[in-house]
Design a protein around this nucleic acid. Structure first.
Lengths: 204, 204
DNA sequence: AGCCAAGTTGACCGCAGGGTCAACTTGCCG
DNA sequence: CGGCAAGTTGACCCTGCGGTCAACTTGGCT
């Protein structure tokens, strides 16, 4: 790869990181090219597709943050605090960085590394949940799918209320509903992972 | 108004009701015209704008359903059952009819009658909440704004999970978090109505 | 320095959406 | 039944998106 191509790729990665972070993963590619100061043709030449760019720019950063949240949660002595802190933290990440909100929704199935991050995060969330449930501090009928659906639903509100922290209230209401002592029977069976995916992607 | 214009307006209203109900209020106007079997020019000629069409087609129906839900809630002897049933009912309306989901989000500020429905619904929700709080069965720090934000966040999930009823789980978790006995202090002050509106519209 | 492959550019295509309007058709009244 | 206003049509404009590619520029090797 020639030096100028290297430079352009770097500029594009930087611009993409900025715009993804500001406005989510669906920002127009031409706008990324514009901010990077190169032609959009160059972007297509160097990356080929939005998914490839996402994989290069977002996947590692998202993985680092989400993995760290899971690690912190599991390292917490109190399983409930670990779980509650995890939910707050992931919501906060979504509030601060719109790109992270798009990770969990699986709206970019061709970004393979990102899908890997998504899968790992789902497994981590399940572990955090299970630990709390084994400790008897989290209602046993709450599933990983429930949590992901909650996070996905909150994402837009978290983004829009990043400054005021209003999203924290929704998390608090949820958490108060997840303690075993307060649990009432649920009106519907838990969604399968496939159902969850279909609901998230909006597809059939 | 000439007879053929009358007929076309009726066909357009029917087609709009169908498509709004199937796919929400942002359905392309040209598609409505296509389903009605008329030119899109006729649609613009007869209604002038999407908002006007919405006001004619959706506002009354939405008002009827939402008002009925509120009436039922207030007529319920048990304030908690009234409140809980109201939340379920509104979510169900959103699940069954995507157009209703778009009503609460205030995404069509120029549809004045629809905004009126929105305001009345907000007031009704506040009344349902207040009654339950006065009876001591609903935590006192839960506000109408909180409920609207919840409903707006759930709307896409309710739509996508209309068949399976998975959305009911989210409602159930919320309700279990709203009983006074289980309430923990909230991590953020309640949003003002203005904040809520800004969050819903995504705008500044 | 000279050359050529590597890289860049921006015009261009297709598509979809909102919106307009001159030319046409047609309901309806005298 | 004739004629005109009312109404309809679809071609057309604009914007903005993803994506392609021939023509140009330039890095860097010999």
């Amino acid at each position: 790869m020639r030096a100028d191509a290297q430079r352009n790729a770097t500029k594009l990665r930087e611009a993409a990181a900025e715009l993804f972070g500001e406005r989510g993963l669906q920002v127009p590619l031409k706008e990324i090219a514009r901010r990077a100061g190169v032609s959009h043709g160059t972007l297509y030449n160097l990356f080929g597709s939005r998914e490839a760019l996402i994989d290069e720019v977002v996947a590692d950063l998202a993985a680092a943050r989400l993995d760290e949240a899971a690690r912190t949660a599991l390292a917490c002595d109190d399983p409930w605090s670990g779980f509650a802190g995890y939910v707050y933290r992931v919501c906060e990440l979504q509030a601060v960085d719109p790109a992270l909100g798009d990770v969990l929704t699986r709206r970019f199935p061709d970004a393979s590394r990102l899908m890997g991050v998504c899968d790992r995060t789902f497994a981590a969330a399940a572990a955090v949940i299970e630990r709390a449930q084994r400790a008897g501090v989290l209602r046993p009928d709450f599933t990983g799918e429930d949590l992901v659906l909650f996070l996905a639903a909150q994402a837009p509100i978290a983004r829009a209320s990043a400054g005021s922290g209003v999203w924290k209230r929704a998390v608090a209401f949820l958490l108060d509903g997840l303690r075993p002592a307060t649990a009432h029977p649920l009106p519907a069976p838990p969604p399968t992972t496939g159902q969850m995916t279909r609901i998230l992607t909006g597809g059939p």
